[in-house]
Amino acid sequence: MQIAAVAHEADVVRESRPRRLLRGPLPFLLPWLVGFLGLTVVPLLLSLYWSFTNYDMLQSPQWVGTSNYVQLVHDPLFRTSVENTAFMVVIGAPAGIILGLGCALLLRRPIRGSALYRGAIFMPAVVPSVAVAVIFIWIFNPDYGLLNAGLGLVHIRPQGWLADPSLAKPSLLILLVWEAVGQIMVLMLAGLAEIPGELYEAASLDGAKGWQRLRYITLPLLSPVLFYSFIVWIIFYLQFFTEAFVATASNLGAPVNSTLFYSIYLYQSAFSFLKMGYASAMAWILFVVTMIITVILFRLQRRFVFYRGEQHA
C-alpha cells in the first residue's frame, strides 16, 4: 500500500514537473540564467569562433584558421606580456601569502589592540582598486611622492618608481600586496582558529619548539587554506589588469612595455588595434594556461595538502 502510494506520487511529480519548475525554482533562476547564457556562455563560444577569424568589430569576421595563434608565437610583444605577467605571478602570489600568513601569526592571539591592527591591515581590501591606483600614483611620484620623501629622511636617493622601467613592476607589486595582505590575513586567521589547541599542547609536552610547532602543526593544518589562497591569487595575477590600466591609462604598458601585462595587451589588441580575433586567441590561451596551472596545483595538492576530515574516514 505504502509502496503504491509512493509510486503514485512519483507519477504525479513526473507529470507536472515542467509546470512545477515554472512555478517553483525556474522564475527565481531565470534572471541568473539569462545573464549566464547571454553574458557568459554565448560570448565565450563566440570568442572561441572569433579566435579563428580576422574580426575588427566593424566588418563581419573572416575565417583565417589558426593564423592568429601562429602570429602570437612570433609576436615579441606577446612574449613581453607573458614575461611581465609571469613576474607578477611568481613574485606577487607568494609575497602576498607569506606576508598575510605572517600578519595572521602575529595577530593570532588577542594581544592589546589586536582588533585595531587587524582592522588596519584589512582596511586596504575595502578601498576600490581604481582609487588605490590613483593614490599610489601620487605616493610613487618621484619629486612630490610620500615614498621618496620618506626615503629622503634616511638619505636614500629618490627613485623613479612607476616612471623607471626596471622599477615599475615592483612598484605595482608593492601596491597589490598592500591591497592583498589584509584579505589573506583574514582567511589565515580563520584557518588558524580551526587548529585545535590540544595539538600544540601535546607538541609542547614532547618538547617541540616554536619553529617545529609551525612546521609540523600549523602549516600542515593550514594547508587547505594556503592551497586555496595560492589558486585564487595565481589566477588574479594571471588576469591582472585594473591597477596597471589606471596607472598607465594614457600610455598602456609604459614605461618601455615594462607594465604591458597579458590582459593589458589583450585589451589593447582588441580595442585599440581592432584585432578582436587576435585578442580572442589570447583570451583562450590564457584560459587554457590557467586551467593547466590549476590542474597541476590540484595534482600537487595530494602531496602537500592535508585535510583533517580525511583522517577519520
Binding site: 611620484n141 618621484p142 612630490y144 611622492g145 629618490p158 623613479g160 612607476l162 616612471a163 623607471d164
Partner: peptide
Amino acid sequence: PENMANFESS
C-alpha cells in the same frame, strides 16, 4: 634616462 623620466613624471 631615469632623470629625464623623473623630471617628466614629477
